[in-house]
């Protein structure tokens, strides 16, 4: 009885979990993830049935055997045939499983036509995202966030300058390792607009836990609008406060690591901040991008992400406010 109850609970929990989740295998919104989810439910149904049957037979043998008083009298040959049959049945099921996963794999791996190509470089511990384009001046860079148009295939090309990372957006596609010295890529098409979260899935060092990112899937016209803005340089500061903030940024250590296109800040160690204000999160998905979080982050990065490579920069109170306001103005 308890086993059945446990199974019931398990099934209920699994199906509940499937209802929501912006970082979940069970809520697929990309073609790649949808076919895998279909395969998953097929496997799960068959496997759960097998388990129930095996447990039922085990339970029967336990109950039955207690009544049994004369051992060693069973027809051993018949039992041998039954076992042979079970083995044959498992072979058939496994062949079906193998074929099913082979064909799913084939459909996932098919090369896309006219994909949107984005280069994703994984760093300890953030994602550098470069939109490639034939026109050099249409290339642009952002971080920890990929905007994509729904319905168009996306081709991600991966690179890692340090250790092995793994790119994983469970709602959209299976994961792909990012390996130094190796060329890897991933394709998928997002079917529904929305914000999806993912994070690094290969242990990549001490802040592996804080290496998240977002995919923002938009209707094509919205995506084009976003892209148009991102191609452009940063918004120049429009008032005294923002100008002060800009000065703080370029005259302190900030500019030696970060680029803000259209300004003197040209560092290439950390993320490009040209349109920082338009992003969803700070520190690779660690906290939402709000003014308060940003101030906290600049004042003491290690308070939010203890082992981040971003150093603390000592700033006076009004400098901190100004630089935060400036960065948030970079829409």
């Amino acid at each position: 009885m308890r086993r059945w109850a446990a199974l019931g609970v398990a099934v209920a929990v699994v199906s509940l979990a499937g209802c929501s989740g912006f970082q979940s295998v069970l809520n697929p919104e990309g073609d790649n993830a949808i076919s895998i989810a279909r395969l998953f439910w097929f496997f799960l149904t068959v496997c759960a049935s097998i388990w129930i049957v095996v447990m039922a037979i085990l339970a029967m043998s336990l109950v039955r055997a207690r009544r049994n008083t004369a051992p060693e009298t069973r027809d051993q040959r018949r039992m041998g045939f039954v076992i042979g049959g079970c083995v044959a049945a498992s072979v058939i099921i496994l062949v079906v499983f193998t074929l099913a996963s082979f064909f799913t794999n084939k459909s996932i791996a098919a090369a896309p036509e006219d994909p949107l190509t984005v280069k994703v470089e994984a760093h300890q511990w953030w994602w550098q995202v470069t939109y490639l384009d034939k026109r050099i001046d249409h290339r642009f860079e952002t971080a920890n966030e990929i905007h994509v148009p729904v319905g168009r295939p996306i081709l991600l090309q991966f690179e890692s300058p340090d250790v092995i990372h793994s790119f994983w957006m469970p709602n959209l596609a299976g994961k792909q390792d990012v390996i130094p010295g190796r060329f890897t890529e991933l394709t998928f098409t997002v079917e529904k607009p929305g914000i999806y979260r993912g994070q690094c899935a290969e242990f990549c060092g001490i802040e592996h836990a804080h290496m998240g990112m977002y995919v923002v899937a938009q209707e094509p016209f919205e995506f084009d609008k976003w892209r148009g803005r991102q191609i452009g340089d940063s918004v120049p500061p429009t008032n005294a406060m923002l100008r002060h903030g800009y000065m703080v940024f370029v005259s302190n250590a900030c500019a030696s690591c970060h680029t803000i296109r259209g300004t003197d800040a040209g560092g290439v160690v950390g993320p490009d901040l040209t349109h920082f204000g338009s992003r969803l999160s700070i520190a690779a998905g660690t906290v939402p991008n709000t003014m308060a979080n940003l101030q906290g982050w600049i004042a003491n990065p290690h308070g939010i992400k203890p082992y981040t490579q971003m150093p603390s920069v000592a700033l006076a109170g009004d400098d901190l406010t100004a630089v935060s306001q400036y960065l948030e103005s970079l829409k």
């Binding site: 086993r3 295998v25 993830a33 076919s35 895998i36 395969l39 998953f40 496997f43 799960l44 496997c47 759960a48 097998i50 388990w51 095996v54 447990m55 085990l58 496994l94 499983f97 193998t98 099913a100 996963s101 799913t104 794999n105 996932i108 793994s166 469970p170 596609a173 299976g174 994961k175 792909q176 899935a201 290969e202 242990f203």
Partner: peptide, 26 residues
């Protein structure tokens, strides 16, 4: 038997390449 059969069956699941790309390292 109760526990291992579950582990064996999830093992069959992770043997499938597409399923593994989702559940690997999770």
């Amino acid at each position: 038997i109760f526990t291992f059969v579950i582990g064996g069956l999830t093992g069959v699941m992770v043997a499938s390449v597409p399923l593994d790309t989702q559940v690997h390292d999770t």
